[in-house]
Simulated scan of single mutants.
Amino acid sequence: MQNDEVVVLVANAKGRARVDKFVSYTIDADLYSPEGSFSFECDSKYDMNRGNLCQIFVNRKCVMAGIIDTVRRSLSRSGPKMEIEGRSVASVLADSSVTKFGTLPRTLPQLAERLVKDLPFLSRKDFVFNSGSDKDKIKRKFVELSPGDSVFDVLKKAANSLGFLFWASPDGSLVFDKPVERGKADFRIHAFENGEEMDYIEGSVTETLNGQHSLIKVIGESQDDSDIKYVAASVKNDDFPFYRPLVVNWNENEGPAKKTAELQLATEKASAIQLEYTMSGHSQNGIPWTINAFCDVEDHYNGAVDSYLIKRRTFTLSRSEGKRTRLELQPGGSL
């Protein structure tokens, strides 16, 4: 196993501090949460303070851009200790409420620019608009605000209404893109049926029927010239073993009924099977494990042979276990 290099660069008042010696750490990123988090424990004192920006690198590749929230220094007879905690830069969106009400722009680029105008660390250039996400017009009901709404919630709601995923990439970019059901795999996990050869420390596959349905039917009302018409769309889940229907309320402001049904089905299928693996080190062939990437799984013992999306990744270091990576995977296509 290669010795993956972990380095933290902190922007401070004197320029930059470099941290590359740790007692322990945890670096956590989740595709469906804006608040990636990190914590470090060191036995040396470094020049850093709460509010400092930092970048975390594994094998010279940025795996998180963050803000230091907490710095704790202590001294005992066993020596000095410094503990650092923080979250990704995207946490600014989750922590900040929208303060300016009124009519908001109805395209994602204009909406993002308006909402982050007064926020620190972020600007329009930090947003990436893929798959035509900068073109579609948002229905007005999806940019209506309530007191207490966070900037992240408003952007996520607007993006999801158009069928786009809104997520924070490891380098700090804020990305609008279509959820991908299938893609070229960047990683591979395998274990043979007899368990004699496997490249993970521990692995599990959980399959469930909870929250799943065989048929999803979307029903609502459309008002046109005082003439009420019932409209419906339906999709089937051919993988479900018996008949269990779901009826979802819908109105025409939510977009095409068929899309609503298909997104519901994709979400259910993604939660039907969950994979968890613990790997040695932080990379495969020198490439750090990352979220929103596909991994070919050939785990005959646990009954999973397919390509799955990495939805959560946690790097850890401890004296007892060394460097490890915990992965959570699921089928692609979910918002």
Rank of each mutant, 00 (worst) to 15 (best):
M1Q: 15
Q2G: 15
V6W: 05
V7K: 06
V10S: 15
A11M: 07
A13V: 01
G15A: 08
A17C: 14
K21G: 12
A29W: 00
Y32N: 08
S33I: 03
P34I: 03
E35F: 02
E41G: 09
D43I: 12
D43E: 14
D47F: 00
N49Y: 05
I56C: 14
C62D: 02
M64N: 10
G66W: 00
G66Q: 05
V71T: 10
R72Y: 04
R77E: 01
G79T: 07
G79M: 04
P80A: 11
P80Y: 12
G86M: 01
R87H: 07
V89P: 00
S91G: 11
S97I: 07
V98T: 10
V98K: 06
L104Q: 06
P105K: 04
Q110F: 13
A112C: 15
K117H: 11
D118F: 05
F121P: 05
D126H: 15
D126A: 11
D126E: 15
F129W: 12
S131W: 04
G132L: 05
K135P: 06
D136T: 07
L145V: 15
S146Y: 03
P147L: 02
P147N: 10
G148T: 11
V151Y: 00
K156Q: 13
K157L: 09
A158F: 04
A158T: 04
L165S: 05
A168W: 01
D171V: 09
G172F: 00
S173E: 13
V175I: 12
P179I: 04
G183P: 08
K184T: 10
A185H: 02
H190E: 10
F192W: 14
F192R: 14
E196I: 12
Y200L: 03
E202G: 12
S204A: 10
V205K: 09
V205C: 12
T206L: 05
G211R: 08
G211I: 11
Q212W: 01
H213M: 05
L215T: 14
K217P: 10
G220P: 10
E221N: 15
D225A: 12
S226H: 05
S226L: 02
I228V: 15
V231L: 15
N237T: 07
N237M: 03
F242Q: 12
L246C: 11
V247P: 00
V248T: 14
N251K: 09
E252F: 04
P256K: 12
P256G: 10
P256S: 12
K258G: 11
K258P: 03
A261V: 09
E262Y: 02
Q264P: 00
L265N: 06
E268W: 01
I273S: 09
I273F: 00
E276R: 06
E276F: 02
Y277H: 09
M279G: 05
G281K: 01
G281F: 01
H282A: 07
N285G: 09
G286V: 02
P288C: 02
I291N: 00
I291R: 00
D299C: 06
V305S: 13
D306W: 00
L309P: 13
F315G: 08
T316H: 12
G322W: 01
Q330D: 04
P331F: 02
